[in-house]
Nucleic acid binder design. Structure first.
Length: 282
DNA sequence: CTTTGGGCCTGGACGC
DNA sequence: TGCGTCCAGGCCCAAA
């Protein structure tokens, strides 16, 4: 479940693996992703070298030295693996969509069992205006994401605040895990309508989102089920969860009231599980 | 315009 | 053991 910290961590891994190394050959093994991988993608990246490593929202952008860029979205279960020389042919499985043979003999594989990911190649100059980026809100770690911005954007909206911060047209990069964790930190009930947030709460929320995302990036992301770093390592932010996937447990700050409140609650919002502590989050 | 809900996908967990 | 069912969730789109 890659959210911004996981995407950032994967980007760092790709930098380590790809920087200064030419892509000798590229082959699309299984083209079916959320959108079909274009048959021309392989030939556009072959013999190219990645010279720019960027992220926008949950998308990874790899700029090549041939004026093409590879756009990657990890979806739910997308991951990269870096394999040493000789391993690739033996161990490919049916969910390995793209195989890159790199200068020096190693290989980079993109695997995505649930096929919600995206692999797209386009001219570098088209990237910033591409269809995927048109409706995106600001980066959560940038100055443009502030309490004032949030008030202007959601001050009149009735959607629950948790769904608002997961909406990529409002702010990017926040998914189900960090939405719950940030709301817990800001002591805001995820069910509350966005328009009922006061200035102080919006400030706390913005600060909490930035804090949680930064801490998770530092920890290499959270590893649950599918997500892995490029070198196969697990991130470790999951050990810092206060509420996510902790239904019925006591939250770190109100164990004295757990018997009364029933501990951390799980509710469904927009088809997604939300975790919160009704004692701490009002 | 806003909000809601379903669909896409597969593997793993769980109950019987 | 094996089967069916549910769940994970980022993102898109149709419907109200």
């Amino acid at each position: 479940m890659p959210e911004l910290p996981e995407v950032e961590t994967v980007l760092g891994g790709l930098k380590t693996v790809l920087a200064g190394k030419k892509i000798l050959t590229a082959s699309v093994r299984s083209p079916k992703l959320r959108t079909i991988i274009s048959p021309s993608l392989a030939k556009h990246i072959e013999q190219g070298t990645v010279i720019g490593f960027r992220r926008r929202a949950k998308y990874i952008i790899l700029d090549l030295d041939n004026e093409k860029s590879l756009l990657v979205h990890l979806g739910m279960s997308g991951s990269f693996a870096h394999w040493p020389h000789g391993k690739a042919d033996r161990d490919l499985d049916r969910h390995d969509h793209l195989l890159l043979a790199l200068e020096g003999g190693s290989a980079l594989i993109f695997r995505d069992p649930r096929r919600f990911g995206i692999l797209e190649c386009m001219d570098t100059k088209e990237i910033d205006d591409c269809i995927h980026f048109r409706k995106l809100g600001p980066e959560p770690l940038g100055k443009n994401f502030s309490a004032g911005y949030l008030r202007a954007k959601i001050g009149q909206r009735k959607i629950p605040i948790k769904q608002a911060i997961m909406d990529q047209s409002i702010v990017v990069g926040v998914g189900n895990i960090y939405a719950s964790e940030a709301l817990y930190h800001a002591r805001i009930n995820p069910l509350r309508p966005s328009c009922e947030m006061n200035e102080k709460e919006l400030k706390s929320l913005v600060a909490a989102i930035k804090l949680k995302l930064r801490a998770a990036i530092k920890a290499g992301g959270s590893t649950l089920r599918d997500y892995r770093q490029v070198g196969g390592e697990a991130g470790c932010f999951q050990t810092s969860f206060n509420v996510y996937d902790r239904e019925g447990l006591t939250c770190p700050d109100c164990s004295c009231n757990a018997r009364k409140t029933g501990g951390i609650q799980r509710v469904i919002q927009g088809g997604r599980s939300t975790f919160y502590c009704p004692d701490r989050q009002k």
